[in-house]
Simulated assay, not measured.
Amino acid sequence: MKSFLISDDLDTLMGLRLSGIAGELVEDRDKALALLEKKLADPEIGIVVLSSGILHMIEKEVMAIKLKEKKKMIVEVPAVGGKYDSGYITRYIRDSIGIKL
């Protein structure tokens, strides 16, 4: 099972490439949606990683896909230099899997 990054940030793309995750730089909403659909249809891709900028661009569509998709995982990676408060990770876990920490 492979992972694939869809990013609007070159630093995030290069960082994840260094860790072995392939990806593509996308700058507009239509291209992001088309690439997401293409990667979800690829049987070799198990995890699609979206940069926070891309997720914000296509959030409604991603949430609809997450509700019906059973075999693939879509996750967000914060942008380099992104500003998240100290409770971000705790809230993210709680909201994602329902465990209160």
Rank of each mutant, 00 (worst) to 15 (best):
I21G: 10
I21L: 11
I21S: 09
A22D: 15
G23Q: 00
G23T: 01
E24L: 05
E24C: 01
V26M: 07
R29T: 12
R29Y: 01
R29M: 14
D30V: 13
A32Y: 00
L33F: 05
L33Y: 06
L35Y: 01
L35H: 04
L36M: 02
L36C: 03
E37L: 12
K38W: 09
K38S: 15
K38G: 02
L40G: 04
A41K: 00
E44C: 06
I45Q: 03
G46Y: 06
G46N: 10
G46T: 08
V48T: 10
V48R: 00
V48P: 03
S51V: 00
S51C: 09
S52W: 02
G53C: 10
G53T: 01
I54M: 04
I54H: 03
I54V: 15
H56Y: 08
H56S: 13
H56D: 13
M57Q: 06
I58M: 04
I58A: 01
E59K: 10
E59A: 12
K60T: 11
E61Y: 11
V62L: 03
V62G: 07
M63N: 13
A64R: 14
I65T: 12
I65G: 12
K66L: 12
L67S: 15
L67F: 00
K68M: 13
K68H: 12
K68V: 15
K68I: 15
E69A: 11
E69M: 11
E69S: 13
E69H: 08
K70M: 15
K71C: 00
K71P: 00
K72D: 13
M73V: 15
M73A: 15
M73K: 14
E76Y: 07
V77H: 00
V77Y: 05
A79V: 05
V80A: 13
G81K: 04
G82Q: 10
G82T: 09
K83G: 00
K83V: 09
D85L: 14
D85S: 08
S86H: 12
S86A: 14
G87A: 04
Y88P: 08
I89N: 08
T90L: 13
R91K: 15
Y92S: 07
I93Q: 06
R94T: 03
R94V: 05
S96R: 12
S96F: 12
S96N: 07
I97K: 11
K100P: 01
